[in-house]
């Protein structure tokens, strides 16, 4: 009984954090499902793909991979390029996912941008089990995404909606998460490095190819500044 109460509490603590993601994911998932539908794929495709790939931008790219000539090597390289940022998330979550038992493989499988950001920054109440909290965040987000994608695949081009601009909900969420992280730390070297590297690489490489150079530049600068950063205590405490 005690365990059940704890699980329930964890759910109640996790759910509010996922509300903005619900708003973003059903909409983006819907867009993806519609895109699959008008590209000639039955709803089972977006349903299954959103469930087992579970990575928004890759799933959009996968549509063109499926429509083009059969090229497994190209698909593999594209996947690694688009998904490489997860390597960073994994490094950041090594400690937090420790001791989560059977939930751990699923937590890692479902570690999309949004689940990672919430699980990393959320202030989890003391009476709540952090493993269950992170589990519910991950499950709920996964569910919203599959739900949106399936609905879009089913309804296809029949729906018309005036939700222009709703996709900004994801931008707003990342701005809030960035700001929360900013408020938590005394020094902001790393935050500056992230923003400046991204803008610089975006200008140099353009919107479709800037992520890998950005990640390498961030890694390079953080490695270069390791000594001063560790000495001045410019690292977040969470």
């Amino acid at each position: 009984m005690k365990k059940q109460a704890m699980i329930k509490k964890s759910f109640q603590a996790a759910f509010p954090y996922t509300i903005p993601i619900f708003a973003g994911f059903w909409f983006l998932g819907l867009t993806y499902g519609i895109y699959m539908n008008v590209s000639g794929f039955p709803f089972l495709y977006p349903m299954v793909m959103s469930f087992i790939i579970y990575g928004g931008s890759l799933e959009f790219v996968a549509v063109s991979l499926l429509l083009g000539a059969f090229n497994p090597l190209q698909a593999f390289i594209m996947t690694l390029m688009i998904q490489a940022r997860h390597l960073f998330y994994g490094i950041a979550m090594l400690d937090k996912y420790k001791g989560t038992g059977w939930k751990k493989p699923y937590l890692i499988f479902g570690m999309c941008d949004e689940s990672f950001s919430i699980n990393y920054t959320a202030t989890i109440p003391k009476e709540v089990d952090s493993g269950w909290f992170m589990f519910f965040v991950t499950v709920l987000n996964h569910f919203y995404w599959v739900f949106g994608a399936t609905l879009g695949g089913l309804l296809g081009s029949f729906i018309r909606f005036n939700t222009e601009g709703l996709e900004f909900v994801m931008t707003a969420m990342f701005v809030v998460i960035f700001l929360e992280q900013w408020l938590k730390e005394d020094k902001h070297h790393s935050a500056f490095i992230g923003i400046v590297s991204s803008i610089l690489c975006l200008i140099l490489w353009g919107p479709d190819h800037f992520m890998i150079p950005t990640m390498l530049l961030i890694l390079f600068l953080l490695t270069l500044l390791r000594k001063p950063l560790e000495q001045t205590g410019g690292l977040s405490t969470s």
Partner: peptide, 26 residues
């Protein structure tokens, strides 16, 4: 975990969140 990776685990997130904001605006 090697000390360098532990350092990255602490130093990376702020940079990642900055990167994700720019990614949304790309």
């Amino acid at each position: 975990t090697p000390a360098y990776v532990q350092y990255l685990g602490k130093a990376l997130p702020s940079a990642i969140f900055g990167m994700l904001v720019i990614y949304c605006l790309k």
